[in-house]
C-alpha cells in the first residue's frame, strides 16, 4: 500500500538540508517501526519518494514524501508512531493512502506556495499591496539564472501564479515542477530590484505553505488531496 506523508518543518531544523532530511526519515520510519517496503537487489533500500526539495533556511508547512508499506494498523496509529519518532520542529501533519495509479510525490509536483515574512515587522516595506500588484502585472519578468556552466536570462512570469500582499508579508504561488521550478529567493530578488530596494535575504523568513499537484481538470490541489483517508 502506498502512503503519502505530509510534514512541517520549523525552527532550528530549517538548517537541515534536503538529503539529510531524507536520511532522517529513513531512520525515523524504522524507529517508528512502520512496516515499510524495501526494494530488491544486493543493497535494498526503503521505497521512498520526496516531493520538491526545500532549500536550507526555508521553513515549511507542506512537505511531502511517499512510502510503501506492507502492513499497517490504521492511520491514527501510523501518525502517532511517526510523530513519536520526530524531532523538535518536524511534525507529521497528515497521512493519506494513494491509489496504485497516482503519480509519485516527486513526479506529481506542479506548484508550491510560499509566505515571505520580515523577521522584524518594522522592516516590511510600505505600500506592498500596490507594488506586488504592479510587479505581477508585468508581461514578463526576466532574471539572470546562474547554472554551473553558464548564466542565462529567463522569463519567470509564466511560472508565477500569484504574487500578492498578505497581512504577514507576501504570498506567492509558483511553478515547482522539475522542469520549471522557481526558487522564491530568485523571484524576490527580482521584485526588490523592480522596487529599487536593496534585498537582504537574511531579513526575511520564507515558509513554504504547501506543495501542489494538478487534478484531472488541471486545477492545483495540495499533494495530500490526491490521496484518501484510510
Amino acid at each position: 500500500m502506498r502512503i503519502r506523508i505530509k510534514f512541517s518543518k520549523h525552527g532550528a531544523v530549517k538548517f537541515i538540508g534536503h538529503l539529510d532530511i531524507m536520511r532522517f526519515f529513513q531512520k525515523a520510519i524504522r524507529r517508528a517501526q512502520i512496516d515499510v517496503a524495501y526494494s530488491g537487489g544486493f543493497s535494498p533500500h526503503q521505497i521512498m519518494s520526496f516531493a520538491a526539495p526545500l532549500g536550507v533556511g526555508l521553513c515549511s508547512n507542506g512537505e511531502y514524501l511517499d512510502i510503501e508499506v506492507n502492513s499497517h494498523q490504521g492511520r491514527e496509529d501510523m501518525m502517532s508512531r511517526l510523530n513519536e519518532a520526530m524531532v523538535e520542529g518536524i511534525k507529521i501533519e497528515n497521512i493519506v493512502a494513494l491509489s496504485d495509479n497516482a503519480g509519485n510525490a516527486m513526479a506529481s509536483v506542479a506548484a508550491a506556495s510560499y509566505l515571505v515574512e520580515w523577521k522584524l515587522k518594522a522592516e516590511k516595506p510600505q505600500g506592498l499591496k500596490e507594488s506586488c500588484h504592479s510587479f505581477f502585472a508585468q508581461k514578463e519578468i526576466f532574471v539572470t539564472k546562474e547554472t554551473k556552466k553558464s548564466t542565462m536570462s529567463v522569463d519567470l512570469k509564466p511560472g508565477i501564479y500569484a504574487f500578492e500582499e498578505k497581512e504577514e508579508g507576501i504570498y506567492l504561488l509558483v511553478d515547482a515542477s522539475s522542469s520549471g521550478n522557481i526558487k522564491p529567493a530568485l523571484l524576490l530578488e527580482a521584485f526588490f530590484a523592480y522596487l529599487n530596494l536593496p534585498f537582504n535575504p537574511n531579513s526575511i523568513q520564507i515558509t513554504r505553505e504547501d506543495t501542489f499537484t494538478r487534478d484531472k481538470k488541471g486545477s492545483l490541489i495540495p499533494l495530500d488531496q490526491a490521496g484518501e483517508n484510510f
Partner: peptide
Amino acid sequence: EILMQVEKPARYIGNEV
C-alpha cells in the same frame, strides 16, 4: 545570517534524535 554562511550549519544546531 551566520548559519547560512557557514558550511554544514547542522554541525552547530544540536536538536538531533
